[in-house]
């Protein structure tokens, strides 16, 4: 079976972003970029399913600018067989991204689409669920365990109260949570091999999708800063402060 893995190029998770002085957005000039960590987990899961013999082909896809080819190469170094870049300079929103992915699902007919549960820049956590709705597929979000057997996928989900397991008919959408797996590092030979794997570039217009958005960002501001606190010398002093100064215990 075929798996489609949508991945996203985002600011590296170690970077603390700064808001631009004119409040138009965050400053991403010269900032280190990387594959969204949840997408790495998605690629890893697809690769493990292939190693188990469940999956025959893995296609990585991203909607982004030229630079995002770097993350597609990474995905192929990790084990994706080929990849597709839907090239756009626009800051596409999840609904438009889901529509573009739906067009690719129609073209490629994957049995499984594995996405990250959230991108760590927009923090929207929408794309997988929207794609599932548009494609009429069931969804297993926030997955910590995925088992494919007999035309179905069983997904254990991390929910607020603990864990929930659902069984979905294929084709289905799965979004990854942190505990699903620990992604491998790409080896040098695999990085070299990935350079020769097919990377198809198409335009949003080719897919008949518009990236116009109904949501406008009016301004982006830094969060309220916490004022610096004090160091206490002992547990006794801490308890005294919490009781008499902060009055929280």
């Amino acid at each position: 079976m075929k798996v489609l893995v949508p991945i996203k190029r985002v600011v590296d998770y170690n970077v603390k972003v700064r808001v631009k002085a004119d409040n138009s957005g965050v400053d991403l000039a010269n900032v280190k970029m990387a594959m969204n960590p949840f997408c790495e987990i998605a690629v890893e899961e697809a690769v493990r399913l292939k190693e188990k013999g469940v999956v025959t082909e893995i296609i990585a896809v991203t909607i982004g600018n030229k630079a995002a080819q770097e993350q597609l190469r990474t995905a192929m170094a990790l084990g994706a067989d080929r990849s597709i870049l839907v090239e756009t300079e626009e800051d596409a929103q999840p609904l438009a991204i889901a529509k573009a992915l739906k067009a690719l699902v129609d073209k490629e007919s994957p049995d499984l689409v594995i996405l990250g549960k959230q991108a760590i820049d927009g923090d929207n956590s929408q794309t997988g669920q929207m794609l599932a709705a548009l494609a009429g597929m069931p969804q297993g979000t926030f997955a910590s365990e995925v088992n494919v057997a007999d035309g179905k996928v069983k997904v254990t989900r991390e929910i607020d109260g603990g864990l929930q397991t659902v069984e979905l008919s294929l084709p289905a959408v799965v979004t990854t949570d942190l505990r699903l797996n620990e992604p491998r590092y790409a080896s040098l030979p695999n990085i070299m091999k990935a350079k020769k794997k097919p990377l198809e570039v198409i335009s949003a217009a080719d897919l008949g999708v518009s990236f116009a958005s109904s949501t406008k960002t009016l301004k982006v501001e830094p969060p309220a800063e916490r004022s610096a606190g004090i160091k206490v010398a002992s547990v006794a002093e801490l308890v005294e402060k919490l009781k008499n100064e902060a009055k929280v215990i």
């Binding site: 956590s125 929408q126 794609l131 709705a133 926030f142 989900r157």
Partner: peptide
């Protein structure tokens, strides 16, 4: 996790964006 799970699906069914 309940709201995050089904709400984007609602938005897509109504062909609108979601504000998270």
């Amino acid at each position: 996790t309940t709201g995050k799970n089904f709400m984007p699906r609602v938005a897509a069914l109504l062909d609108v964006e979601q504000i998270s």
